[in-house]
Amino acid sequence: MLKIDSTEQLLRVAALVSAVIAVLILIWYLLVRPPLGRSTKIVLLFGLGVMPLATSLAGNISGFEYTLQRSFCGSCHVMLPYTQDAADPTSHSLAAIHSRNRAFGEESCYTCHADYQMFGTMTTKLNGLRHLYYYITEYANTGPYGEGGKPIHMYKPFQNAMCTRCHSTEAPRWGKVDDHAAALDDIRKGDTKCIDCHSGEVIHPRAFAHGGNGRAPARTASNAAPAGAAKE
């Protein structure tokens, strides 16, 4: 029995139904080849215009919604060390802890890594196209976890704003941490990065430990770059 749990699934069903209607109309036209009278033109307008447009619209929205999900990020195998750890209910990594929070849930990758400024959604999606390009040209033939590929890196350093959207730096419990209190102004200005302390190995330990993506299994001089330039 078909079960629809989300708007994305509803849109997918709507897109499929309108696509099937369009296909049936077009196949009918190709098989019967009726004269191009008024009624045929109207029916074809539905088959060639209205229904495909509905399919496109609903398909686009559901497609964009799907690209927010962690399973989509994990569909490129080089991301598996990141997504598998995030989905692991026994993991204590920052990514996993955040993913168990309902505010992040199945969209935890996007929630932490998306750009949030004006046009952020568009720039995030354009970066996604760059991901796809690099995946096809550089990582498609790498090992199960991306072994043999170049180290994966972010296009720009991880900004404190990604963290301070939720961790406002105003909460008393947060301020009681000595390092937070000592660097409060610098953290708010962005001079001290959250990931200077909460580094990539704490956020995505499996990606750093398995030796994939060209990384050494243990921390070495080559991957001990400043956390601000950490690539995860």
């Binding site: 997918r12 897109a15 499929l16 696509a19 369009a22 296909v23 077009l26 196949i27 036209y29 190709l30 074809l44 088959g47 060639l48 495909p52 399919t55 496109s56 398909g59 559901s62 497609g63």
Partner: peptide, 16 residues
């Protein structure tokens, strides 16, 4: 137009 639409619908259905 009909054949092209069928091709584009096939792509859209596959992506869904």
């Amino acid at each position: 137009s009909t054949i092209t639409t069928l091709a584009s619908l096939a792509l859209m259905i596959a992506s869904i």
